[in-house]
Nucleic acid binder design. Structure first.
Lengths: 212, 212
DNA sequence: CTGCAAAAATGAACCCATTCAACTTTTTTC
DNA sequence: GAAAAAAGTTGAATGGGTTCATTTTTGCAG
């Protein structure tokens, strides 16, 4: 095992992916031609297509790496949510947001999201959708956790509210990546403004947390 | 005024738009080539680009017509919202959804939404964003209206909750157009399931409306 | 009418993602 | 270790959106 062919294949794939992550961020997804990636990765154009079905596939692969990291980070918060309904939710969401520009530019996010919408039935789109679903599940799980703990009222439909909050945070992230002038701070502030009132509505008297 | 040139211009533009609306729906956005539209509209390829900046522009123009109609329909509901917080909200949202496939296919919606995300700084994207904002404002206005009427609790931040509900309905619509197997009925049901709990939380005791 | 300037229309040329038939390299078989 | 098979690489060809230099049409002044 670990024959020459295997090693060469893995090597080529990572060369392509590294080249892509670098060039996409530096020059923008649009501006980078497959030929550029091929050159940087020292393979031919045809070979790039041997590893990735489309240009968009390469982008999704880089985005997926990012989201996997975010999910792991979120799991840690789920293990020990901070006290206060609003604070716990905003901590989780804030973690997503703060990580998002670590390796990716706004343009890359925009393009990836657009791809996932346009072609939901490709391996592409399905992978992105699955990651999205995992994030949504994390938000819902947090609410269920808080409900167990007695911070969220028992009669609240945690699954429904979780979905609504996730959809909201996702949409706000979309606004964020669409607007080059919007900062992470702006995003945090906007989502806090929207999430706090909902958190207050679902919180038990005792678990209401801090200031307005 | 209304010289020959003006009339011809307007005529060509509508010929192109009509051809596009028809062909996009019949054959799918992807499958239709600019050359096809040019032929159907009896102009040259170059002329199409004289009226619309990109292929996506033509699609956005057809989508915009649809959304204008939906906004007008929504305004009528705002004038006299039905009683019950959940029912009023769901009536408005349901109107949006039911109208959405009147002239457009799911594929057209997907592509238009993807375009609006990918290129938010084009006239394209801005126009779509403006329509989106108008829809969001309608939802918020409805909540404010219900608050005046005493159906929504005075201490609720109607603007924040309105934004959250709009983001949710928008995201659910996105799910709907991404999944060819999902019916309008499914969409209505899913959104009702998510909206009702929130409506219950913000409603005054008296205005709680109907069943579970 | 005639000639001229402005406005539009035109379609061939260009760019790039994607495909595919021919060629190389690695692995397997005897 | 040679030859066949399998797996992978290659880059020229294809297709369709977009551009732009040229041609045609329209509006207008004399």
């Amino acid at each position: 095992m670990a024959g020459l062919r295997e090693r060469q294949k893995a090597d080529r794939e990572t060369r392509i992916l590294r080249a892509a992550a670098t060039r996409f961020r530096a020059d923008g997804y649009r501006a980078v031609r497959i030929e550029d990636l091929a050159e940087a990765a020292e393979v031919s154009v045809g070979t790039v297509y041997n590893y990735y079905r489309t240009k968009g596939d390469i982008l999704i692969a880089t985005v997926a790496m990012e989201v996997e990291e975010v999910l792991a980070q979120g799991a840690a918060i789920l293990d020990a949510p901070p006290p206060g309904v609003a604070d716990a939710i905003l901590r989780l969401i804030g973690g997503y947001y703060d990580h998002s520009l670590e390796y990716l530019s706004k343009e890359m996010w925009r393009t990836a999201m657009a791809l996932a919408i346009e072609a939901p039935d490709t391996p592409n789109g399905r992978r992105y959708a699955a990651l999205d679903a995992a994030l949504a599940a994390q938000v819902t799980d947090l609410l269920l956790r808080l409900q167990e703990r007695g911070e969220v009222r028992a009669e609240v439909d945690a699954r429904a509210v979780g979905q609504v909050l996730f959809n909201n945070l996702n949409m706000m992230f979309l606004e964020f990546v669409k607007d080059d002038g919007m900062t992470l701070q702006d995003l945090h502030a906007a989502v806090a403004r929207q999430t706090r009132p909902v958190a207050r509505l679902i919180a038990t008297r005792t678990g209401q947390g801090d200031a307005p």
